[in-house]
Design a protein around this nucleic acid. Sequence first.
DNA 1: CTGAAAGCGCTTACAG
DNA 2: CTGAAAGCGCTTACAG
Lengths: 338, 338
Amino acid sequence: MRKTGRPTSRDVAQAAGVSQSTVSIVLAGKWAGRISPGTAQSVRDAAVRLGYRPNLAARNLRLGRNRTVLLVVPTLTSMFFGGVHTGAARAAAAHGFGVVVYPWPEVTGLARSPFAAAHEAIDGILASSMAVDVLGELDPLPQVMLDSDPAGEAPTVNFDVAGGTRAVVGHLAALGHRRIGHVAASVDAWTFRARAGALAGAVRDLPAGVLTSGRTAIEIGAARTAAGRLLHRRDRPTALVCDDDLIAAGAYKAARELGLDVPADLSITGFDDMLLARAVEPELTTVRLPAEQLGAQGMAALLELLDGRRPGSVSLPVELVVRASTAPVASVNGQGVR
Amino acid sequence: MRKTGRPTSRDVAQAAGVSQSTVSIVLAGKWAGRISPGTAQSVRDAAVRLGYRPNLAARNLRLGRNRTVLLVVPTLTSMFFGGVHTGAARAAAAHGFGVVVYPWPEVTGLARSPFAAAHEAIDGILASSMAVDVLGELDPLPQVMLDSDPAGEAPTVNFDVAGGTRAVVGHLAALGHRRIGHVAASVDAWTFRARAGALAGAVRDLPAGVLTSGRTAIEIGAARTAAGRLLHRRDRPTALVCDDDLIAAGAYKAARELGLDVPADLSITGFDDMLLARAVEPELTTVRLPAEQLGAQGMAALLELLDGRRPGSVSLPVELVVRASTAPVASVNGQGVR
DNA sequence: CTGAAAGCGCTTACAG
DNA sequence: CTGAAAGCGCTTACAG
């Protein structure tokens, strides 16, 4: 009688009248040519009968690997990171790996690292959208950084946000916009720095281009305030480029407050293309960031790393999705801008 | 020389000049009165110097438990389940437990159970918003069901959606609404059945109350169509009760298409109160479902279960958040309804 | 105050 | 074709 009611391979062996090692070989599917079919079948029957499931801890200990990867994200409450998780889990599952997700520092707090918990039974780390190298110092495990500064130590998988930003500016420029306002996310992350840099460059290259900008938390109320400030300027921008769809939703509210029609009086663009983009009215022109693909490719890179190979850093193309929030700039005499 | 570069407690012991068991005792913090402070310190120093971290698989095997719980959700790409995960992870962390999340059947597919993967190193299961008992047959592990039919075997933690629905109807009734349209989610889940039942009851209790209803996938386009159908009826409802904020966003679009002003011509309510509710215009009156609390309480119940106690089923109160999408019903002669 | 030993449940050479 | 044995890295009685 064991403490736990859970049957072990030894129980199965006893029930099938064979040795424990035979059970192990049969259930691992490695019996062909080593165990007689009849014996194999009786082992399988016994396993089913007893409801046997192997003890993972024992297997992992024996094998020296866990077939599990830790995914670290800033927050769990976001469709974007949900997408990253989904893609990572799918890619992992295809290789028999599992993924455990850890928000950091949200739940653990900065003091405790995400590695203090039970999840330490991991083989590698996938970290998304982290400030540079916070993880590098914490853990020597193989790791891949997602949506992070490619200048770091670890291989990265990123979106081509610079390209996406240029596509936005190209689209706006074609509509006649020259005064662009950037409602930037006040988050210290590579992706936002890259967007700001690309935007500055693209507007600079625009004949008569003028860039103004303000920063905001990624939150509707704050975004409304920040966008409102930009819209109150004498040289009011005719288009607002927002670092996130949620910020764009705030910008919509600021526009409405000022009696500005979107897109007739003001064009607005976002970033992400989560469902928010289609929920608002008018539907939002935005840069689609394929989160699942980020997770999947990141996992693929990490799996390579675990395999002893050295994956290159990759940049995923993004797509500008044009909807109804952008339109040709209003005629010069349109709205009393000087 | 071991295969892996990772130091073990044996390495630490050797470096500190003590036995392996001493290392184990010291690092577990159980040395007081058993090991001299000096020895303890030298063990700790050696552990730090070597970058030692205990092998979880070995510890779990030895201890017969994993301190890990599996959270099963229908999808990862949802702020709601992100909230559930956050709450569960927080409650778990407080007890030294970790949680691994598994979407099911999204990633695995129905064929493979979520238990086929590495995550089998778990002690219990928290399953959210599942069709009844899909899990019961699959796994004998202790489990708690979230947002699920309380008639099942396992203890449940649910929202008081019936109460929330009644609050919605009470609010609408106070505004003079009698003709209520239910834009229901076409998802086979306890929570939606409970909402439909409560709504039917509440409208029946309303003098001159009339309920019409239609079903839709939880998706903007489909919701717009379903809501539009309700709004085209001769006895057009003056208020639309939507099973989800996203459905409400679709209803907004249907109203706009018909030239109906929200809330002057049509009141609309939702369920969830994810950020979508504040992104749309006008901001949505909705029933707030505290997802994090669901996760946290569910985890608490599961931890009790793992502790050998038998937790009762609980129903969490929900709150109606009144915003700008509901208003007094338009005067009878208002819009040619009849 | 410290160490030697058993054993958690597996997988995998190795022996027969 | 099958079994006995070693050993993965821990924790915890037990002995001294």
